[in-house]
């Protein structure tokens, strides 16, 4: 399958901090998950691919267009949908006005066509009933859906979503997952998240990043399989485990190299993720 996004050797430094280090990837149609602890470089990678920031080294194309030139960058942006980590809203705008504003930024200047498109994307995220409401009066979940609607304006071929389910309650999260799954039909979606459940439920492929590098690139099943034979239960915390925590039933679940005779259990995607990060989870630091 022809990749929507093809990147090689992307590197980016901020002062002495290495945010991206020789990142190469190819993204195809469907939802690809991007997992990693805070400071792993996920948002930086998303911003580079969304053309908000230029990499120091390396190159990439989106749908065949090279954003290295101003003209190429504009072509990429015409085919891009972007939902930032903390989408901002003009407080006095209604949902309709905000999406309309984004549609204008996406060069839809004909009023009739633009309003038709705004209604289409608001319908797509099930916000038709509140399109006339001011955004400041909407719930957090609804605001996220407004931002998702804005990112869908113009039917982009490449959709970049930066932690869209953060701060949502479980019901809202489930609702949002449905919308992302729908958005992933027929286009390429790169979904950054801290939630391994998001990846397990939505993604055909997953990348794990740490310290600016891609540590894993494969299917969720392959990430889970990495932990096969490395997860065991014990009555007490196993000091030899790379990570361990008390479960709801009182026993400890351990990830790492099991001791002889350990009570091995079925691994989950989260186990594979933790093992990939050497058990450090959210404590992996940037270089």
């Amino acid at each position: 399958m022809t990749p929507t996004v093809s990147a090689s050797g992307l590197s980016l430094h901020y002062g002495g901090t290495r945010a991206l280090d020789d990142v190469s990837l190819r993204l195809t149609q469907g939802v690809t998950g991007l997992l990693g602890p805070n400071g792993a470089g996920k948002t930086t990678l998303l911003r580079v691919l969304a053309t908000a920031v230029s990499a120091d080294r390396g190159a990439f194309t989106v749908l065949g267009h090279d954003p290295g030139s101003a003209a190429g960058r504009q072509e990429v942006r015409r085919r891009l949908g972007y939902l930032p980590q903390t989408p901002g809203f003009h407080p006095d705008f209604t949902a309709f006005e905000f999406v309309d504003y984004v549609a204008i930024l996406k060069e839809l200047t004909d009023r009739t066509a633009r309003h038709r498109e705004v209604r289409r994307v608001l319908d797509e995220v099930d916000l038709a009933d509140v399109r006339g409401k001011r955004i400041k009066k909407l719930s957090g979940g609804m605001r996220q859906r407004v931002a998702l609607a804005a990112s869908l304006v113009g039917d982009p071929g490449f959709l970049v979503l930066d932690e869209p389910t953060v701060g949502l309650d479980p019901e809202q999260r489930m609702r949002f997952r449905e919308l992302i799954a729908r958005a992933g039909e027929g286009r390429t979606v790169l979904l950054s998240t801290h939630q391994t459940e998001d990846v397990a439920m939505l993604c055909h492929r997953v990348l794990v990043m740490a310290a600016g590098t891609v540590r894993f690139d494969g299917t969720p099943a392959e990430l889970t399989a990495r932990a096969a034979g490395h997860v065991w239960n014990s009555a007490e915390r196993d000091p030899g485990a790379k990570a361990g925590w008390r479960t709801g039933v009182g026993s400890f679940r351990n990830v790492g190299d099991p001791p002889p005779g350990a009570d091995l259990v079925e691994p989950s995607l989260e186990d594979g993720y933790l093992l990939t990060l050497d058990g450090k989870g959210a404590e992996v630091a940037t270089a």
């Binding site: 908000a52 504009q74 942006r77 015409r78 891009l80 984004v102 204008i104 996406k106 060069e107 804005a150």
Partner: peptide
């Protein structure tokens, strides 16, 4: 952030 990645 949304404006900067727009085609405008």
């Amino acid at each position: 952030e949304m404006a900067v990645v727009s085609p405008v």
